[in-house]
């Protein structure tokens, strides 16, 4: 458990948030032309990194807005929080 600095609400307890998994997975532009392998890659395959990971979070019990986070999954340390659509920071 940790404290998350929501870009809209400020510091709140992690239990207020839900995690949406790996960030920056781009939705296929032309789904009808995707092969089964490409669908599997988009839907299921994940880097599941031990270390610094980019992920999506939602302030579910707060402002209900989505945002991105850079977090080290080996120690739960948060390196950066940034809004959807913003460029990911270089870390």
């Amino acid at each position: 458990m940790f404290i998350i600095n929501c870009p809209y609400c400020g510091e709140r307890d992690q239990s207020e948030f839900s995690c949406g998994g790996e960030a920056h997975i781009v939705r296929p532009k032309q789904p009808t032309e995707l092969s089964d392998d490409e669908w599997a890659e988009y839907l299921f395959m994940r880097k599941n990194i031990k270390g610094v990971q980019f992920e999506r979070w939602n302030h579910a019990h707060g402002c209900r807005k989505w945002f991105n986070m850079v977090r080290d999954t080996s120690n739960d340390k948060i390196h950066a929080v940034y809004k959807m659509g913003e460029k990911p920071p270089l870390i």
Partner: peptide, 13 residues
């Protein structure tokens, strides 16, 4: 926990 972590701890809630 509802998020990816390799910390072998887990949350209090």
């Amino acid at each position: 926990d509802a998020y990816i972590s390799y910390t072998q701890r887990g949350s209090h809630d």
